[in-house]
């Protein structure tokens, strides 16, 4: 997936968000660091460029809400979460780069609820690669990418990674 394809996917998501949320001033895009935050920012820009009001953006760090702490040799670097408060009456859209098992999204929902009780929570992801382990579905998906469990999907974004925008599918190494 190249830069143009990524841009097209983001525009489609932006249009869908506008379509399904008539009251855009109550929408908050909460990105999961680090690429989710970048994508949330781009989505907000696109929505604004469509002549719509600027939606709220924030970052929601899920590290301390994960269910696998203590089982991995390396701890994720935790970061502060920043959300425009209060959340009551708001629609918080979790924004992630790759939607996979659903565990990150669960952790994000848990984290959001510690800030308050939004009216609803939705999910936007650039890529949906399948293999869900929890009963969670995406509301806005840029592209469905069928993968094998051992494969890796790698997104690169210019502003985060210093490489041109692209999605790479890395096949399983044969032993």
């Amino acid at each position: 997936m190249d830069a143009a394809a990524i841009d097209r996917a983001l525009r489609r998501i932006a249009h869908e968000i506008v379509e399904r949320n008539p009251q855009l001033d109550t929408v908050i895009l909460a990105g999961i660091p680090s690429r989710g935050v970048e994508i949330a920012g781009r989505l907000a820009d696109i929505i604004e460029s469509l002549g719509q009001p600027r939606v709220g953006i924030g970052a929601i760090d899920v590290s301390m809400h994960r269910d696998d702490i203590g089982t991995r040799p390396e701890l994720p670097r935790v970061q502060a979460s920043t959300l425009p408060l209060p959340l009551e009456g708001k629609t918080v859209i979790i924004v992630d780069d790759v939607f996979f098992t659903g565990r990150t999204v669960r952790a994000a929902m848990d984290a959001i609820s510690s800030f308050g009780r939004p009216a609803r929570i939705q999910l936007a992801a650039l890529i949906d690669r399948g293999h869900r382990e929890l009963p969670i579905r995406g509301d806005y998906v840029g592209k469905n990418l069928p993968t094998a469990p051992g494969e890796q999907v790698r997104l690169r974004l210019e502003d985060v990674d210093g490489e041109p925008d692209a999605v790479w599918l890395i096949k399983e190494e044969k032993a």
Binding site: S63, M64, H65, R66, D67, I69, G70, D110, A111, S113, S114, F115, G116
Partner: peptide
């Protein structure tokens, strides 16, 4: 936060 508790440990 409103709920000052995370499930980390």
């Amino acid at each position: 936060r409103e709920i000052k508790k995370v499930p980390a440990l």
